[in-house]
Protein backbone atom coordinates (compact mmCIF):
# COMPACT_ATOMS: atom_id res chain seq x y z
CA UNK A 1 0.00 0.00 0.00
CA UNK A 2 1.08 3.57 -0.67
CA UNK A 3 0.27 6.23 1.90
CA UNK A 4 -0.85 9.59 0.49
CA UNK A 5 -0.71 12.63 2.78
CA UNK A 6 -2.32 16.01 2.18
CA UNK A 7 -0.35 18.81 3.80
CA UNK A 8 -1.26 22.26 5.09
CA UNK A 9 -4.64 23.72 4.17
CA UNK A 10 -5.92 20.80 2.07
CA UNK A 11 -7.38 19.37 5.25
CA UNK A 12 -7.91 15.79 4.16
CA UNK A 13 -7.06 12.65 6.11
CA UNK A 14 -4.31 10.42 4.60
CA UNK A 15 -5.23 7.67 2.17
CA UNK A 16 -3.81 4.16 1.88
CA UNK A 17 -3.94 3.18 -1.78
CA UNK A 18 -3.01 0.09 -3.78
CA UNK A 19 -1.27 1.87 -6.66
CA UNK A 20 2.01 1.48 -8.54
CA UNK A 21 2.46 4.79 -10.33
CA UNK A 22 1.51 8.48 -10.25
CA UNK A 23 -0.90 8.25 -13.17
CA UNK A 24 -3.11 5.94 -11.11
CA UNK A 25 -2.88 8.36 -8.20
CA UNK A 26 -3.72 11.30 -10.44
CA UNK A 27 -6.85 9.54 -11.73
CA UNK A 28 -8.02 8.75 -8.20
CA UNK A 29 -7.44 12.29 -6.91
CA UNK A 30 -9.07 13.95 -9.91
CA UNK A 31 -12.29 12.20 -8.97
CA UNK A 32 -12.06 13.39 -5.34
CA UNK A 33 -14.04 16.61 -4.99
CA UNK A 34 -12.09 17.72 -1.94
CA UNK A 35 -8.70 17.39 -3.64
CA UNK A 36 -9.20 17.81 -7.39
CA UNK A 37 -9.05 21.60 -7.38
CA UNK A 38 -5.73 21.54 -5.50
CA UNK A 39 -3.87 19.35 -8.01
CA UNK A 40 -2.80 22.07 -10.42
CA UNK A 41 -0.97 24.00 -7.69
CA UNK A 42 0.33 21.12 -5.57
CA UNK A 43 3.92 19.94 -5.62
CA UNK A 44 4.63 16.28 -4.85
CA UNK A 45 7.14 14.53 -2.61
CA UNK A 46 8.01 10.83 -2.55
CA UNK A 47 9.27 9.68 0.86
CA UNK A 48 9.95 13.32 1.79
CA UNK A 49 11.97 14.09 -1.36
CA UNK A 50 10.49 16.53 -3.88
CA UNK A 51 9.88 14.98 -7.31
CA UNK A 52 9.23 16.50 -10.73
CA UNK A 53 9.12 13.32 -12.83
CA UNK A 54 5.83 11.49 -13.12
CA UNK A 55 7.51 8.36 -14.53
CA UNK A 56 8.30 6.63 -11.26
CA UNK A 57 7.30 3.26 -9.90
CA UNK A 58 5.71 3.19 -6.47
CA UNK A 59 6.30 0.31 -4.11
CA UNK A 60 4.69 -0.99 -0.97
CA UNK A 61 5.38 1.33 1.97
CA UNK A 62 6.07 4.45 -0.09
CA UNK A 63 4.72 7.78 1.10
CA UNK A 64 3.46 10.47 -1.25
CA UNK A 65 2.91 13.99 0.08
CA UNK A 66 0.95 16.75 -1.66
CA UNK A 67 2.27 20.23 -0.91
CA UNK A 68 -0.05 23.14 -1.71
CA UNK A 69 1.27 26.69 -2.33
CA UNK A 70 3.50 27.92 0.50
CA UNK A 71 4.04 31.19 2.31
CA UNK A 72 6.47 31.12 5.19
CA UNK A 73 7.66 34.11 7.15
Amino acid sequence: MVRVEFLGPIGKEPLELDITNLSELSDILKSDDKVAHWLETCAVALNDTMIKDKQITLKDGDKISLLPPVCGG
Partner: peptide
Protein backbone atom coordinates in the same frame (compact mmCIF):
# COMPACT_ATOMS: atom_id res chain seq x y z
CA UNK B 1 -3.18 31.50 7.68
CA UNK B 2 -4.65 34.86 8.67
CA UNK B 3 -6.26 34.90 12.11
CA UNK B 4 -9.53 36.79 11.86
CA UNK B 5 -12.13 36.66 14.65
CA UNK B 6 -10.34 33.64 16.11
CA UNK B 7 -10.56 31.63 12.87
CA UNK B 8 -7.69 30.54 10.61
CA UNK B 9 -8.05 31.48 6.94
CA UNK B 10 -5.48 30.12 4.46
CA UNK B 11 -3.53 33.00 2.86
CA UNK B 12 -4.10 31.59 -0.61
CA UNK B 13 -3.53 34.80 -2.57
CA UNK B 14 -0.14 35.39 -0.91
CA UNK B 15 1.06 31.81 -1.35
CA UNK B 16 3.36 30.50 -4.06
CA UNK B 17 3.14 27.13 -5.80
CA UNK B 18 6.39 25.20 -5.30
CA UNK B 19 8.50 24.66 -8.43
CA UNK B 20 7.23 21.51 -10.14
CA UNK B 21 3.65 21.91 -8.96
CA UNK B 22 0.90 20.33 -11.03
CA UNK B 23 2.53 16.92 -11.45
CA UNK B 24 -0.75 15.16 -10.65
CA UNK B 25 -3.05 17.49 -12.61
Amino acid sequence: YDIIDGQRKYAKERSTAIDGAGLLS
